[in-house]
């Protein structure tokens, strides 16, 4: 079965979740990937949305973090102060799953503005839950399409901290989680180098050349010696991914 680069990205991200993981999910691609994991290899993955829904099991892909179906299918629905204080900050979440507009080489993320803060070229929605998700989850995964505009030498705004300025930064800042463990893109997968904590190309997706990933990165991208190729999406994965629909899409499809 042939697939698009966006499908490859969602599948590669979903594979990073393990059965039973407790996952704090951002809306959009992270939610799609987490629900794909639940529909395939990780049926007991616990999905938590910042609207306070714990253990949501939506049949339809949610359009927003507060869809009614998330509340109807959740094990518990709690208030927003509780979800951030008792559940996220207290260190009960295994995996945070985020999107962003920009990342730098240390996995710091921008979801606030492009350009100057006071006179932005593009005003983005802002941090929402991301700053504390990146701070407090045991590990954080990021999904972001790779281009020189998104993988930048210098962020326009640091909304969420990956590895700050490099080794020692997270410890100095008192951030308890391990930080960004992978950035999954439409071209491949980047992981922090164990020494420098710089995002390094660990995998390319089938049909993608290393030079393509390097050209799509705004800093001199290091490539791992043991660079791997991602496994193609299986028929089962693609079928499950294409079956994920928002309630509206399902209705339109009849």
């Amino acid at each position: 079965m042939s697939h698009t680069s966006e499908e490859m990205m969602a599948v590669a991200a979903a594979r990073r979740l393990h059965d039973g993981d407790v996952c704090f999910v951002g809306i959009g691609l992270p939610s799609k990937a987490a629900n794909l994991a639940r529909a395939t290899h990780a049926p007991r993955c616990v999905l938590i949305y910042e609207s306070g829904t714990i253990g949501a099991k939506p049949l339809n892909l949610p359009l927003s973090i507060g869809d009614g179906e998330l509340a109807e299918t959740a094990d518990a629905v709690v208030g927003v102060p509780e979800i951030f204080a008792y559940w996220l900050q207290a260190g009960r979440i295994d995996v945070g799953f985020l999107g962003a507009a920009q990342t730098d080489r240390h996995g710091n993320l921008n979801s606030t503005v492009i350009g100057d803060y006071d006179h932005p070229r593009v005003r983005l929605p802002g941090g929402g839950g991301a700053p504390e998700i990146a701070a407090s989850c045991k590990q954080t995964l990021v999904i972001l399409k790779q281009s020189p505009r998104t993988f930048v030498e210098r962020l326009d705004f640091r909304t969420s901290v990956g590895f700050g300025d490099g080794p020692g930064s997270r410890e100095r800042l008192g951030l308890r989680g391990r930080g960004i463990t992978a950035v999954i893109t439409d071209l491949g997968e980047l992981e922090p180098d164990p020494e420098t904590l710089e995002l390094t190309l660990a995998r390319v997706h089938p049909g993608v050349g290393v030079e393509q990933a390097v050209a799509a990165t705004g800093w001199p991208l290091a490539v791992r010696d043991d660079l791997e190729e991602s496994a193609r999406p299986t028929g089962r994965e693609l079928k499950a991914l294409r079956a994920l629909r928002t309630a509206d899409e399902r209705e339109r499809a009849g």
Binding site: P131, A135, T159, S160, V161, L173
Partner: peptide, 13 residues
């Protein structure tokens, strides 16, 4: 009080 904002550009705003 919370563990938050540390290392981000948000405190300036």
């Amino acid at each position: 009080v919370l563990r938050g904002y540390a290392g981000t550009d948000l405190p300036a705003h």
